[in-house]
């Protein structure tokens, strides 16, 4: 089917990369981090790109998933899969509770409220030191095991993380093309218009907020087991911002843009190892530059700028409004 064409392309790239470059650090090691970040970005894109609701606190949900897995498997020695499930349920609960009042807000207020929420959750990871290990975090998180198969090598993690990513992308694609997806995009286009067409905008915003939180929490659980160690730094305000940049860099409401954005942003510090101190500066410059010069994102923006050069027939290439 046509709608899955890009999906198969993505799956092929993911499959071929480790076969063509089996010992390349960027594929087998960074590739895992890219997949995990991309999974969060794909979920956040459902909320931000398609529904038009900004969240500056998504690192919190990533953190809730990671800490649920980390705490339950180390302190209580639970089975990792049970811990993951409980992490998802906890995220569902928190997201549902917070979404109701938060999503009544718009624009700057929504940004500030999600930001505040993220910071509060981050402080809750640092402060109860006796439980969470405080700023030092949790270590010795056990490996994940799928049907007797220990996920303990780079390539195994590559398969699991990218498998999860493909699953997430598939779900997101389906959702966007469904009746609910149309309603979500309608909310972005015009809230009054959507309401008048029978869309319960309050309910649908809450639900997509929960869905995108679950994407992040799932990624968080994988992250905890993959790293074997977590600390609050990975779930700070700064990471929330990076997530937003991944979505924006790729292009909001673009199907594969967030994956591209996640890849760029995850590789950035790796390629800048020599200029470590420049990382912050460059991140800031990218954010400003993209928004000022390519507001539709690098992925969408560049493809729109390049397309007319090849297609001579004047099909009206309209910039996406808003």
């Amino acid at each position: 089917m046509k709608r899955y064409r890009g999906f198969f392309a993505l799956a092929s790239i993911i499959t071929l990369a480790p076969i063509l470059f089996p010992v390349n650090y960027f594929v087998t090691v960074v590739g895992v981090s890219i997949a995990i970040n991309a999974l969060i970005a794909v979920g956040l894109n459902l909320l931000m790109g398609y529904t038009g609701q900004i969240s500056l606190g998504h690192a919190a949900f990533f953190g809730i998933g990671a800490y649920a897995s980390g705490l339950l498997t180390t302190l209580l020695s639970w089975n990792p899969w049970l811990a993951l499930l409980v992490g998802l349920l906890a995220t569902w609960l928190v997201a549902e509770l917070i979404a109701r009042p938060i999503l009544r807000l718009k624009g700057h207020y929504l940004a500030m409220a999600t930001l505040g929420f993220g910071i509060i959750i981050n402080i809750l990871m640092v402060q109860p030191t006796h439980i969470t290990g405080g700023p030092d975090g949790l270590s010795d998180i056990p490996v994940l095991n799928i049907l007797g198969w220990d996920i303990d090598s780079d390539i195994r993690w590559y398969i699991v993380a990218n498998g999860a990513l493909l699953l997430g992308v598939w779900v997101a694609l389906n959702l966007i093309n469904s009746r609910i997806g149309l309603a979500l995009r309608a909310v972005h286009g015009s809230e009054v218009g959507a309401q008048m067409m029978g869309v319960d905008i309050e309910k649908i915003k809450i639900k997509i907020f929960v869905v995108s939180a679950l994407f992040a929490a799932f990624a968080g659980s994988l992250f905890a087991h993959q790293q074997g160690f977590i600390s609050p730094d990975s779930f700070s305000f700064h990471f929330s911002i990076e997530l937003v940049v991944m979505v924006v860099l790729g292009g909001m409401a673009s199907k594969y843009g967030p994956i591209f954005g996640a890849a760029v942003l995850t590789m950035l510090p790796e390629t800048l190892v020599v200029f470590e101190d420049y990382e912050v500066l460059i991140l800031g410059a990218i954010m400003m530059g993209i928004m000022i010069f390519l507001p539709q994102g690098l992925w969408v923006g560049l493809s729109q700028k390049i397309k007319p050069l090849f297609i001579k027939k004047t099909i009206s290439v309209e910039p996406a409004g808003g």
């Binding site: 469904s178 995009r185 972005h188 067409m197 869309v199 639900k207 409004g321």
Partner: peptide, 27 residues
């Protein structure tokens, strides 16, 4: 108008009340 959508998609949103598939079956 939902300017981020096609003409058909806009009209499809109008059909929202006449469908019942939710998040789960859509996803």
């Amino acid at each position: 108008i939902f300017l981020n959508m096609t003409v058909l998609e806009n009209t499809l949103v109008g059909c929202h009340n006449h469908g019942s598939s939710g998040f789960f079956s859509g996803a």
